[in-house]
């Protein structure tokens, strides 16, 4: 998972995507990062490069970051063509300089996907994910309306599997890794978390139909089963959840078509 420790400081050349704003042309610009401690994180290396740019009166490289411990999902760099860099199961912020050889030339780009337009340099707009969540990524329970937490036992296997799906950090690496810019892994993770739990059953059909429809509407592509998404996922969310969602989707579509519906309308005294 992590390369062997090396004590020696290294020098690397960065080729960084610079773009002044949305809908403006961008280009790669070269920077030297000298004397990097191998225990420095990749983002800390960018901090140091940025400080030297500021000192020279240049605008620093804009990049998204926040928690710097792999859980908030903000950081989103493509390093040498790979979303979140060379290692599996980590976010960009958990990439350390010990992963690179002395003298390496490292290409740094933003996530590339039509539904994630570039805002500036390496920062992209991923608000499309919020819109998908709004379409159905929730259980409709008013605050205070829940029953006692132990009233409904849930098998440990299902709870654990739901937790596997729920680990998604919403970073969008799955979309960036997919040649179709599909958001299937992201959507499948949320749909599966709820469909595995009894609490999620009442809205199971409408949830999957609404979230998939919204994903399509926002311009995300279709899944062609290459599984680049799960390979790039910092939380290793399994593509099995996509299969699970597809089953849910088909069943929901059939039920939607054939299930009898009540004619009642709301209202009354």
């Amino acid at each position: 998972m992590v390369a062997e420790s090396s004590e020696k400081n290294i020098n690397v050349t960065l080729r960084v995507w610079r773009q002044a704003g949305p809908n403006q042309p961008g280009k790669f610009v070269e920077y030297q990062a000298k004397n990097c401690n191998p225990n420095m994180s990749f983002l800390e290396m960018l901090d140091v490069v940025n400080d030297s740019l500021v000192t020279q009166g240049e605008e620093p490289i804009a990049f998204a970051h926040d928690c710097r411990e792999g859980i908030c999902g903000t950081c989103n760099l493509v390093i040498d063509g790979k979303p979140h860099g060379p290692h599996k199961a980590i976010a960009t912020c958990q990439t350390y300089m010990r992963s690179f050889a002395d003298g390496a030339v490292i290409t740094v780009e933003p996530f590339r996907a039509k539904p994630f337009p570039v805002i500036k340099d390496l920062i992209t707009d991923r608000s499309a994910f919020d819109k998908i969540q709004q379409a159905g990524g929730f259980i409709s329970v008013r605050t205070g309306a829940g029953a006692d937490a132990n009233a409904t036992p849930i098998s440990k296997d299902n709870a654990d599997l739901a937790m596997d799906a729920a680990q998604c950090i919403g970073c969008g690496a799955c979309v960036a890794a997919c040649k179709n810019a599909s958001a299937m892994l992201f959507v499948a993770a949320k749909v599966s978390q709820f469909s595995l739990l009894p609490q999620g059953q009442p809205e199971r059909d409408r949830r999957v139909l609404a979230m998939v429809a919204k994903m399509d509407e926002l311009g995300f592509g279709s899944c062609t089963n290459q599984y680049e998404c799960s390979a790039a996922c910092p939380k290793l969310i399994s593509h099995d959840f996509i299969a699970r969602m597809n089953r849910d989707y088909i069943k929901a579509t059939i039920r939607q078509t054939f299930k009898p519906k009540s004619n009642a309308v709301a209202g009354g005294a």
Partner: peptide, 18 residues
């Protein structure tokens, strides 16, 4: 109670309880 109702996958024992 609220979080469980929302589908928060808390750790559980084999008997299915929290």
């Amino acid at each position: 109670d609220q979080c469980v109702a929302q589908g928060v996958p808390f750790a559980r024992e084999y008997g299915g309880l929290l």
